[in-house]
C-alpha cells in the first residue's frame, strides 16, 4: 500500500488496482472550514486531471482533480452530512472516492510523501 501526492494537493493510496483518493491535510488547512463536498456518482469514469469533485469552504469553492484515470467504485457519502471531517481527518476518514485504476503507469508521475512535503514547503 503506497500513498502518492499531486501538485494540486490530492492524495491517492493504492492497493493493487484500487486507489483511495482525497485531499491533503495541507489543502484542507488552506481551505479553512469545509462546509460542503460534492462527490461524483459511483461508476463515473475520469481521465487523469479531470475535475471529479468539489470541496467548498464559506469563501471558496475548489475543484478536486483525478490523480490518475479510473472509474469510481465507491464514494464516501458520509462527507455529505459531515463535511467537517475533511478538516479533522483529510488523509484518513475523509477520503472522497475509491477508484479502479485504468492505467497504473500514471502513478509514476506523482510525488511520494517526502517530495510532497518539500513541495508544500516551497509554497
Amino acid at each position: 500500500m503506497t500513498t502518492y501526492y499531486t501538485k494540486d494537493h490530492e492524495w491517492i493510496r493504492v492497493e493493487g488496482d484500487t486507489g483511495t483518493v482525497g485531499i491533503t491535510t495541507y489543502a484542507a488547512g488552506q481551505l479553512g472550514d469545509v462546509v460542503y463536498v460534492e462527490l461524483p456518482e459511483s461508476g463515473a469514469k475520469f481521465a487523469r486531471g479531470d475535475d471529479f469533485a468539489v470541496v467548498e469552504s464559506v469563501k471558496a469553492a475548489s475543484d478536486v482533480y483525478a490523480p490518475v484515470s479510473g472509474s469510481v467504485l465507491e464514494v464516501n457519502a458520509a462527507l455529505t452530512d459531515a463535511p467537517e471531517t475533511v478538516n479533522a481527518a483529510a488523509e484518513g476518514e475523509a477520503w472522497f472516492v475509491r477508484l479502479k485504476l485504468s492505467d497504473a503507469s500514471e502513478l509514476s508521475g506523482l510525488m511520494d510523501e517526502a517530495a510532497y512535503a518539500a513541495f508544500c514547503e516551497g509554497h
Binding site: 460542503y36 467548498e56 469552504s57 464559506v58 469563501k59 471558496a60 469553492a61
Partner: peptide, 12 residues
Amino acid sequence: LSTREQHIRRDK
C-alpha cells in the same frame, strides 16, 4: 451558500 455565486465561483 455563496460559493454558487459569481463573486466566488466566477466563470463556474
